[in-house]
Simulated scan of single mutants.
Amino acid sequence: MMQIKSMTIKSMDEAGKGLAELATLSAVDNDGDTYDRGAFSWKPGGHQWAMMMPAHDRRKMPFGKARVYEEGDKAFAELNLNLKTSAGRDWHQALLFDLETGDPVQEWSYGYNIVDMDYRVSGNSRVRVLKRLDVDEVSPVLRGAGVGTRTLSIKGAKLRDEHLAGLITDLGAVASAVDADPAAVSATGLKQLREIRDAITRVLAGDDGSGDPAKAASTVATDTALTHFMQHQESLRRFGR
Rank of each mutant, 00 (worst) to 15 (best):
Y35I: 03
T149Q: 12
G38I: 01
V105T: 11
D179L: 13
E162M: 15
T151A: 05
E195H: 08
R202E: 14
F76G: 11
A94K: 13
D198H: 00
M7C: 09
D98R: 02
T201F: 14
L99N: 05
T151D: 10
D136S: 12
A77D: 09
P44A: 08
L79H: 11
S86D: 12
F229W: 02
R58N: 12
R37D: 07
L79D: 04
T149H: 09
D98V: 02
F63K: 07
F76I: 08
S122R: 14
L81K: 00
F97D: 11
I154C: 06
I4F: 15
T201N: 15
L171C: 05
K5H: 09
H163S: 00
M230F: 07
A205L: 12
P44W: 00
L130H: 05
R197K: 14
F40T: 04
Y35V: 01
A55Q: 13
G16Q: 01
I168W: 08
A221C: 03
W91P: 04
S26M: 00
G156P: 09
K191S: 12
P62K: 09
S218P: 05
P54S: 13
R132E: 12
T151M: 09
G206S: 11
D179V: 05
D31L: 14
D116P: 00
P140N: 15
R67K: 15
S153L: 02
G148C: 12
Y112L: 10
L19D: 02
R120A: 15
L79M: 14
R58Q: 12
L204T: 13
D207W: 05
A221S: 07
V105K: 13
R128M: 06
P54F: 08
N124A: 14
N30A: 15
V127F: 04
E21F: 00
F97W: 06
P54W: 13
K74L: 05
K60T: 07
V135N: 06
I168G: 11
L25W: 15
M61A: 13
G102T: 07
V138Q: 10
A55R: 13
A77R: 05
L22P: 00
Y69V: 02
A15Q: 04
W49T: 09
A27L: 12
R132K: 15
D223A: 08
R238W: 10
G211T: 02
L83N: 11
V68H: 02
M12P: 00
T85G: 10
L167D: 04
R150K: 11
D212E: 12
Q192V: 13
G18D: 05
L171R: 02
T201Y: 15
G45V: 07
F97C: 01
L81E: 03
S26P: 00
A145T: 04
K5A: 12
L79E: 05
M117Q: 14
E21P: 00
G111I: 01
L99G: 06
H228N: 03
L190V: 14
S109H: 06
T222R: 07
M51N: 14
I200W: 13
A216G: 08
E71F: 06
